[in-house]
Nucleic acid binder design. Structure first.
Lengths: 344, 344
DNA sequence: ATGAAAGCGCTAACAA
DNA sequence: TTGTTAGCGCTTTCAT
């Protein structure tokens, strides 16, 4: 016994469509999923019925029945800066194009949540997983492999081979940024690192050192301070650098957010950005160009990284056996107004 | 014929648990969902079996069978500033507490996507929907109501009654901020608005004007410039304000991000923040305290807004008939270092 | 090229 | 208090 309802808004199922198109509902399924043979004439009739009824497939049912759930999971550490926001933009543009939905998990840097989510996602909820800056991927990557569960790492420079991933040319970026500063005439360059437990931070530092070495410049340890990719730390490091007996004429911050801190510190020290001390960042988040003066930075194609990772994941979902791939997108120097040749 | 597999990792279903606990699988379902009567002894046995097998419910199946999908959808305009990030933090803390998952939809300000998502979500995918700063809610709110689909609006000051929502006391916040500036001795206060098509921007402006009026201060139209909540526009507006024949001694920006632009403009004009021109923002996003000098601002409890909205949504999911409610969380003044009494 | 029918894993009546 | 069972809407063999 069910309550009779005059609810014209009640859910439209594949059967309703079948009835309207006067075919079996298996045929409707074929048309929708572009699988199996359907005559053009029938196909047209079905499509017509779909639009007329306003039918939308029920993903739960589809997922249950063994089809794709058309959902991908995304695990991010936080949403505090636009860094993740940009990457997410790339992800959801790509996803929208194929009508996939995004399940978001923010760990807020609490490690155990990372693995908790993962169990959930693998349980049929999602077809694949995107892991942005995973903290401890080793913890669950094995179970992905075991279950052949598709995943792609974003911006994680595995020291060991962690699996399919997309990142950027961090070494080259670090190298190029420092090179640029050197070409401007800087000889003493301060460096604010990122979190040194992260591969990308390490690679940027290595690139920086390589450039120094190549020009026969000393690698003064006093000039390299450990940061954490955050603004307050960038500020503190820069203050310390500026307080040195022989302060640097330029500071390279491992990401834009900490470069903002560096800029603040320079001003607070009564110095002029660019004129007195040059600053270069890394990432090119949107804020880099709206800050004043606009920040010269080593650009990572964040949106494209998200998009690329998504396409890669989609391919794995299609073909789980395909070989793992690791792609590093090229960084590029974006010259704005925070770097200048050192004053005489 | 199925390929025999020694895959110990293969999916564990409710039946496996039932077998281990030696009960029917309906009983397992009862225990899991805390529904119906189960003897304590049986319950214990089931729980034991669940943990031993590592069972995780398949949400697709649960959703299909008419239970809750335990997913809520969230539609946001963008993830560019930490504004949304903070709210999302509140949301997912609340969600994690009840083991709900989050489906994220970013419209990137493309209006039509807003409605596209909504159709999807209502189709059984989610139990309810959170709409952050919806652009054009009227477009689909009706169908929510018709289907009794639970939803909550966040930070949308409906000019008309749009439904359950949580926001902040924007009028009061605008009023208090301006009052604070006046109490410091400022008489000419510049105001950079938000997007004036948004109710919250309008209310802040009204609050500002109310405070002016209350103190018998003129509401000079030259002092009110339309912004868009973004940094570049904040910069431009401030430049214009500072270029006035009789420039303001303080500037009130309708959000922190545009206040950052204002700060840049003040410095670029060769003036000192606070000493020469005071600045006050609105929101208190994390960046407000890491910028230099730290920004005095009218705080909106963003995390709490997200959390509150989530709890409200959860209640609607539990009890769809409950009356709509609209709560405005209190704003509060956070005094840091960008405001000072005007110079003599 | 199309239809029939067997589940997918679970919830929620209904029986017992 | 517990078990049995009918679907939920769909994909996917297997027939035809």
């Amino acid at each position: 016994m069910r309550v009779t309802s005059i609810d014209s808004e009640s859910r439209i199922t594949i059967e309703d469509v079948a009835r309207v198109a006067d075919v079996s509902y298996a045929t409707v399924s074929r048309v929708i999923n572009n699988k199996g043979y359907v005559s053009d004439e029938t196909r047209a009739r079905v499509i017509e019925a779909v639009t007329r009824t306003g039918y939308v497939v029920n993903r739960q049912a589809r997922g249950l029945a063994g089809g794709r759930s058309q959902v991908v999971g995304l695990v991010v550490p936080d949403l505090d800066t636009s860094y993740c926001g940009e990457i997410v933009r790339g992800i959801d543009e790509e996803l929208a194009a194929v009508s996939y939905d995004l399940m978001l998990y923010t760990t807020h840097h609490r490690i155990h949540r990372e693995s908790a989510f993962v169990g959930n996602l693998m349980n049929g909820l999602a077809d694949g997983l995107l892991l942005l800056l995973p903290f401890d991927p080793a913890a669950y990557l094995d179970s992905f492999r075991k279950r052949r569960f598709p995943f792609v790492l974003i911006d994680h420079e595995g020291l060991d081979n962690h699996g399919p991933s997309v990142g950027a040319t961090n070494f080259q970026g670090g190298y190029d940024a420092t090179n640029y500063l050197i070409s401007l005439g800087h000889r003493r360059i301060g460096f604010v690192t990122g979190k040194l437990r992260m591969g990308n931070a390490i690679d940027r530092l290595k690139g920086h050192r390589a450039a120094l070495a190549e020009h026969g410049l000393p690698d003064d340890p006093a000039l390299v301070l450990e940061g954490d990719f955050l603004q307050p730390r960038g500020y503190e490091c820069a203050r310390a650098l500026l307080a040195l007996a022989d302060p640097p004429s330029a500071i390279f911050a491992s990401n834009d957010v900490s470069a903002f801190g560096v800029m603040d510190a320079i001003r607070d020290a009564g110095l002029r950005i660019a004129t007195d001390v040059s600053v270069i960042g890394f990432d090119d988040i949107p804020g880099a160009q709206s800050v004043h003066p606009p920040l010269t930075t080593m650009r990572q194609p964040l949106v494209e990284m998200g998009a690329r990772a998504t396409r890669m994941l989609l391919e794995f979902i299609e073909e789980p056996a395909r070989p793992h791939e690791r792609v590093d997108l090229a960084t590029s120097l974006v010259i704005r107004e925070t770097c200048r040749s050192p004053a005489r």
